[in-house]
Simulated assay, not measured.
Amino acid sequence: MWPITGFPPRETLILDEYREKRATYDKLLQVVKDVLADSIKSNNLYINAIEARIKAEDSLAGKLERKAGKYSSLSDLTDILGVRVITFYSDEVDKIAAMVGRLFEIDWENSIDKRKMHDIHSFGYSSLHYICRVPKALFEDPAYPELNSIRFEVQMRTALQHVWSVLDHDTGYKSGFEVPKEYLRNLNRLAGMLELADEQFCAIRTGINNYRRQVQSLVHSGKFDEVALDGDSFGNYLELRPFDSLNERIAAINQAEVHETSLAGYLKVLLFLGFKTLGDIEKMIKENSEDAYQLAAFQLANTDLDIINSSLALVNLCAVHILKRGGGVLELTRCLDELNGVSKVNRRRAEHLYERAKKLAFMETAGG
Rank of each mutant, 00 (worst) to 15 (best):
I47T: 08
K359F: 12
V258H: 03
Y266P: 00
A252C: 11
R249V: 03
L194V: 08
I96C: 00
L278M: 02
A49L: 10
N288E: 08
K63G: 03
R84K: 15
I322G: 00
T12C: 09
L263G: 00
G265H: 12
R157M: 00
L305F: 15
S42M: 15
F243K: 01
L64H: 05
D304L: 15
R212T: 06
S245Q: 15
H129A: 13
A23M: 12
I208C: 08
E65T: 10
E17Y: 04
R66H: 11
F362V: 05
C318A: 13
Y144A: 03
I80S: 00
A61H: 01
L270S: 06
I120Q: 10
E153W: 04
K55P: 08
C318M: 07
L147E: 01
Y89R: 08
Q294Y: 13
T5E: 09
L196C: 07
L187I: 15
L45Q: 07
E338D: 08
T12V: 14
N110I: 00
G231H: 13
M99T: 05
Y354D: 05
C318D: 01
L238S: 03
L246N: 04
E182R: 10
R10M: 05
E226I: 07
V269A: 04
Q155T: 11
D76C: 07
A228S: 04
V258M: 05
Q299C: 10
F243N: 01
A98D: 12
I281H: 05
R325A: 03
L263V: 07
N316A: 08
N209V: 04
G192N: 03
D198M: 02
N48F: 14
I208R: 06
G222F: 02
P8R: 07
F275R: 01
V345F: 13
L339N: 06
N302D: 15
A61G: 00
I54N: 03
K136Y: 12
I281C: 00
V315D: 11
Y354T: 02
F234Q: 06
T12W: 01
G231T: 12
